[in-house]
Design a binder for these strands. Structure first.
Lengths: 258, 258
DNA sequence: CAACGGCATTGATCTCGCTCAAGGTGGCGA
DNA sequence: TCGCCACCTTGAGCGAGATCAATGCCGTTG
């Protein structure tokens, strides 16, 4: 549970494709003001009214953004994975807290310094804008999923979303006997809250999908998908986009069942 | 239903406070490349795979962003009001369509030209970034609202959201006998779809809230709020933020019952 | 090692909201 | 002007999901 700088910041930042593509000059500047921090599962990265304003990139692991409700429960409003950015450039403190959903590694910048870099390098600025646009699209997809009337459909939409918008995350996908496996990064209570349901209903929905042969429950937090098409059917999703199949994702996972 | 340039673009853009605050030089440049368009209620502003890529600002009226489902129904994923920006700078075509929810006036820019301006003027760039951050926060608030288990709570959350995130929109608020009135910018079928429910359930939820004295239904699309605190209670919202009361909003509306 | 607490699951019951159906209203075009 | 159609509303019945409750499991703590 060490919480301080691990290995050098240089290679960590270069893990993110978009950043690796930046000119050397910008990368060098970023390196000088960034600080690598590790967070163990359950640790808070940012609190709600955090005055210690920072922005950052996720290097590895999974974070979740959440709103704290008056009854003390946490409401998840999004997941952050490797390559995602968080923080509010040019604006006030974030209304959401960020917590590590798994052991994670992030690269944080002091906000003012990062903003100074944005002003100097249009390429970086453009990158940040694109990241927020991506997040916005994700959030809107979440909305479509959440507005599905039945819990079964919402759960299917959630799983489908992991396969599409979060597909580049090695941690989530695996390959068991040629079937695609997905690790579910949050527990039943939080998932239930995210989907607007109760833990019992989520559990029943999982097993209902399993009974219909859509998926297989290997562990509470690990399921195997039989067919993405069936999943999309359940979710009522219009199109799958590109060539997205169980095989594609399983191959990308590279056989590490984890 | 005229669909072409109405009055001069100059004063139209200056309607938006953030833009009015920009240096004269930038405003002048914006003016030269912008084009005012009016859309009648129900008209499409942008289609899904629109190749005619544009970005724009809403001058007046209300637009809704929606995803078209395979069954032909439209799924609303957000509302755009005066001062909001739409379009995807630096990125591919939007996965969502935009339609006028009321007679509206927008200011559109050809994307490439607008991007050129972004590159030249950091202030404008910063403004755009802030707009997207606002949209992102809105989308996340939508998520919290949508994840409320009961329709009553989701409807209360929706109304509360109109009072908070969309508060600066003159069209929506009015003052009837000292009570705050809210105009609901979309019809029951769309509202139902947005809230993940059926029109009948939404109607019942409205009247259930009315029976409990939380609000009063003046017209199907016009309700009077008795107490914002009660509304927040119903929605299960943590905090109201700042000094947000029925009186504050009614005063801001300026007594135009409309 | 034992006790505890949180999580996942399953069952039973009851409420809520979906479904189908009908009637009332307003706007729009013939 | 009349007729049409979309919308809003209300009613009745049924299914899905919330609720309450109990069990087994695991990781942690004393």
């Amino acid at each position: 549970m060490r919480n301080d700088s691990g290995h050098g910041a240089a290679d960590a930042l270069a893990t993110i494709p978009e950043i690796a593509d930046l000119p050397d000059e910008i990368r060098a500047e970023l390196k000088t003001i960034c600080r690598i921090r590790r967070f163990a599962q359950g640790q808070l990265v940012t609190e709600v009214g955090d005055t210690n304003e920072m922005v950052g990139y996720v290097i590895d692991g999974i974070l979740r953004m959440q709103k704290t409700l008056p009854d003390g429960r946490q409401h998840v409003v999004g997941l952050l994975v490797a390559g995602d950015m968080f923080g509010r450039v040019y604006d006030g403190p974030s209304p959401f807290a960020i917590e590590a959903a798994a052991d994670s590694e992030v690269c944080v910048f002091q906000r003012a310094r990062f903003e100074a870099l944005l002003a100097r390098f249009p390429e970086l600025d453009r990158l940040v804008l694109l990241h927020f646009l991506t997040e916005l699209d994700r959030a809107r997809d979440w909305m479509v999923v959440l507005a599905t009337p039945k819990v079964r459909g919402r759960l299917a939409g959630f799983l489908l979303m992991l396969c599409t918008r979060y597909r580049n995350v090695g941690h989530l996908f695996g390959d068991a006997d040629g079937r695609l496996t997905i690790r579910i990064p949050i527990g039943r209570p939080d998932l239930a809250h995210l989907l607007g349901a109760r833990p019992e209903s989520v559990s029943r929905a999982f097993h209902a999908l399993a009974d219909d042969g859509i998926l297989e429950i290997l562990r509470p937090d690990l399921v195997a998908i039989r067919s993405i098409e069936d999943l999309a059917e359940e979710a009522g999703e219009p199109e799958l986009g590109d060539g997205l199949t169980v095989e594609t994702l399983a191959q990308a996972a590279g056989g590490a069942g984890r």
